[in-house]
Design a protein around this nucleic acid. Structure first.
Lengths: 111, 111
DNA sequence: CATAAACGTAAGCGACGCCTTACGTAATGT
DNA sequence: ACATTACGTAAGGCGTCGCTTACGTTTATG
């Protein structure tokens, strides 16, 4: 599972704003651009990146193109992060405790 | 909640590799660099970025610096994605829109 | 003190990303 | 057919990113 593209896509603040603006609604490209102080092509380019990353879907209606958040993609991102701390640690509530235990162990058994 | 820094940090493939290599272990900077075909300073710079993003912690032992994954940060990232997911399923777009205007103002006023 | 070991920092280079303005394109209306 | 609407695309400016080599800094050791 290669999550580089979705991660890079969602890392950009402007694209986070677009995703939040969309919410569960379906919006046209121009309507989205109207909410920001950047040019319409800039938003269009962001939408292409989000679409390429699978984070939004596109639907054509007349001359307009309606975009919608693909919540499945966000679920995949969450699953990807789970992968990291299966190797990193057990549970969140014991994270600090485990860290302290590790610090003590390394103090006596450092190479 | 501003997750831009951690997201940009984890979006980079090399830093993903470093985090995976670390796992739950604690490793020195040079030992980490030994696993990749890039220079040691390159890895050192990546580690600074990961540290600044709160994704790893640093501990000094002699002349070495040991790095460790901060799994709490990964938990925060996951919670951040939960925020997006809920926004994509519920109808709270007006509040999200107001948040967008605020974020956009912050961005444009700092250029 | 002097040397070595382990590491971070500085400077610079090529590639990439976000933005702009100008232009091309597909669908609708008159 | 022609104009209009709603877009995407092209080209370029400008900052940022990841990498390199060279140098500085801190800690241990003879």
């Amino acid at each position: 599972m290669d999550m580089e593209e979705p991660l890079r896509a969602i890392a950009e603040p402007r694209r986070q704003q677009i995703l939040r603006l969309l919410g569960d609604k379906e919006m046209a490209s121009g309507e989205i651009a109207g909410h920001f102080n950047v040019s319409r092509p800039a938003i269009s380019q962001h939408l292409q990146i989000l679409k390429a990353a699978g984070l939004v879907s596109e639907r054509r209606l007349g001359t307009r193109r309606l975009y919608q958040v693909r919540s499945e993609a966000l679920a995949e991102l969450k699953a990807f992060l789970d992968q990291f701390w299966e190797g990193a640690l057990s549970s969140l509530s014991e994270a600090a405790e485990a860290e302290q235990r590790r610090l003590d162990n390394d103090r006596t058994s450092s190479q």
